[in-house]
Design a protein around this nucleic acid. Structure first.
Ligand code: FES
Ligand code: FES
Lengths: 132, 132
DNA sequence: ATAATTTTGGTAATTGAATACACAAATGTA
DNA sequence: TACATTTGTGTATTCAATTACCAAAATTAT
C-alpha cells in the first residue's frame, strides 16, 4: 500500500493542534494536544514550538501555561500552517528535483502541477474559524 | 521547498526505464539506462530486477544481455509500473494511516481522495506506446 | 522562598531510501 | 574450452528525514 499525497506526522500535528487550540479558545498545553491526537508529547512540543516561532501561537510557561492563538482563527488557513512546518509548496510541472529527465516531453504532463495547485487552493480556503 | 506529490527515485527509474526500453525496441542493459537517467547503476539494477519479477520485463544474461519488454507496450501503463515498485496506491479519504483522528469530520474533506483518484486515472491512461 | 508545572532548545535514536559491494549464475564470443 | 560480459541475489553502508528524549529556563501557586 502506498500513498500519493503524503502528509508527515509533524504537519498533521500542526494542523490538528491548531484546530484544537482554536476550538478550546483558552490556553492549551502540549499534553492535551498529544492525548487528543494520540501522538508523542515530545513530537507535539517540537511542532508547537515551531508554530510559536512562525507567529501562529503565543506560548506561556509554567503551571496553567500552554499555547493560544496569536491571530484570529479567521485569518489562519491550513496552507500557512502546513507550509510553516513543511516549507513552501513547490509548484513544478514534474516531480524530479533537478532537470535531469532524459525525455524532451515529461510523461507526467502537468498532472503533478495540477494536483499540487488543487491541493494548495483547497488548503488556502480552509480557515480555522470553519472548524470552531 | 516541499512537495505534495512525491515520487521516489526508484519509481522514477522504473517509469523512465520502461519507456527507454520500449523506445529502444531491443535488449537494453543496466548501464544504458543508468546513463540515460543519470542514476546509479546499482539502483537501476535493483529496480529492473523487480520489474522482471513482476512480469514487465524479460532479462537476458551474458554479453549482449539486458532487458526487453515482456508484454506489448500498448498493454503496459504507468500506473502498473508505479504500483509494482511502490505497492498498490491506497484510496482513502484522509491521510492518516490509522483512524486516530480526534475530529468527527476530517478537515481534508475528500481532497486527498480526489487527488489520489485523479492521479491514478491519469497514470492508467498512459500506456507505453504513447511514448514510442 | 519552595515546589510543581510547562515550555524551550539541544541532542540522540530511529527509520527508510538510496547507494555500494561482492560473488554466483548464465551466456555469448574467440 | 576459456574468457569476458551481464544479470541475480544478498548484504552492507551511507545519508537524510523524522521522531524521541532530556536537562535547563521560566512561571505560577502555595
Ligand atoms: S521527469 Fe522525466 S518525464 Fe518528467
Ligand atoms: S485525519 Fe483528522 S481531520 Fe482528517
Amino acid at each position: 500500500m502506498s500513498k500519493v499525497v503524503t502528509i508527515s506526522e509533524a504537519a498533521s500535528i500542526a494542523m490538528h493542534g491548531m484546530i484544537i487550540i482554536a476550538r478550546a479558545n483558552k490556553v492549551t498545553n502540549v499534553l492535551e494536544i498529544a492525548e487528543a491526537t494520540l501522538t508523542s508529547k515530545h513530537h507535539v512540543a517540537k511542532v508547537l514550538q515551531r508554530l510559536v516561532k512562525e507567529g501562529f501561537l503565543t506560548s506561556q510557561r509554567g503551571p496553567t501555561g500552554g499555547f493560544i492563538l496569536k491571530k484570529e482563527a479567521k485569518k489562519i488557513n491550513l496552507l500557512s500552517i502546513y507550509e510553516a512546518i513543511e516549507g513552501k509548496i513547490e509548484i513544478s510541472n514534474c516531480f524530479l528535483d533537478k532537470q535531469i529527465c532524459p525525455f524532451s516531453m515529461c510523461f507526467m504532463n502537468n498532472i503533478t502541477l495540477d494536483l499540487t495547485v488543487k491541493f494548495k487552493e483547497y488548503m488556502e480556503t480552509q480557515t480555522l474559524d470553519k472548524y470552531i
